[in-house]
Design a protein around this nucleic acid. Structure first.
Lengths: 154, 154
DNA sequence: TAATTGGGGACCATTTTAGTCCTGTATAAA
DNA sequence: TTTATACAGGACTAAAATGGTCCCCAATTA
């Protein structure tokens, strides 16, 4: 399925919610209410986002969460890595790459290219895009087909 | 992590192995030996690939597996869906889309666009690409950055 | 008929995930 | 200074997904 974890999904929704009122401080309880998700879970998600430096937090009364930087400078890849760790399709797509089967694998190189292409794509999508409820739609089919695997430089 | 399951990884490796000798019939045991993975696991993977019509099988002595069609007509998306089900980043990226939170979500549309872009990317990568051990490398950084989210038509 | 090879599914162990809760600490307002 | 607010950190549990194995059956060929 190549699916995001549910928490990552929550994170995106919550981040978008915050992004729509960037000046305000957002308490976890308010956010949970706004997005209709259980408070503890939202809270957990927020903590992870703070740890990843995507949000800043302020304790105490009138405290809450704010974006650590403008929504246009936070990417989908940032959000995903904050919750799930680095975006990589396979074990060996990660830096370490200590896969024992490299010798017999034969596809490692190319999976890494694909992985990189996806990461690049996710880095090109910003929170500002995600939070935008009226996205631009171009009528033409996209040129992504033309991006051959071989064009992705390692 | 947006990671492929390990079985999917195996599937890709095994498919690539078969693709390198498309005329021959490949017994599960031989493939397992070639890629250095346990026979039962490889076998399970192969069964899934047959079910997804990516491989054909032949029982009996001298039987085994063959590609159901040329490697250039089998995509990475095909292989992934064969093992993990349809490529979709979020629950609501799938056809049904019965997410109860759509009202408060606010990012569904755009996640679907991202999801589609990734799917398209994975459909553009063929088994022939994956199996190629000497991939072409272009020296220039790819133009993927230029593909804005808004360019992805739903 | 015997040997080979895949088909189908049950089954189990392990890991991951989601979700909750508790205790502590910083902050602000009264 | 006190009190209420709100986040920090982490322990803990339940449920689900995953990986992996195994067994018995069906088809094919020599």
């Amino acid at each position: 399925m190549l699916k995001l974890s549910r928490l990552t999904d929550y994170a995106a929704v919550v981040m978008a919610q915050i992004a729509r009122q960037p000046q305000a401080s957002h308490a976890a309880a308010d956010l949970a209410e706004a997005v209709q998700l259980p408070h503890p879970t939202v809270s957990k998600t927020l903590k992870m986002l703070v740890k990843a430096d995507l949000l800043t937090s302020q304790r105490g009364a009138q405290g809450g969460y704010r974006l650590a930087r403008p929504a246009s400078h936070i990417t989908a890849a940032d959000i995903i890595s904050a919750i799930e760790g680095p975006v990589a399709m396979t074990e060996c797509s990660q830096a370490e790459g200590d896969c024992e089967l490299v010798a017999t694998c034969g596809v490692a190189d190319n999976w890494q290219r694909v992985s990189l292409a996806i990461r690049t794509l996710l880095e090109s999508v910003t929170l500002a895009h995600l939070a935008d409820t009226t996205p631009i739609k171009l009528p033409v089919q996209l040129p992504i087909q033309s991006i051959s695997l071989s064009a992705v430089t390692a």
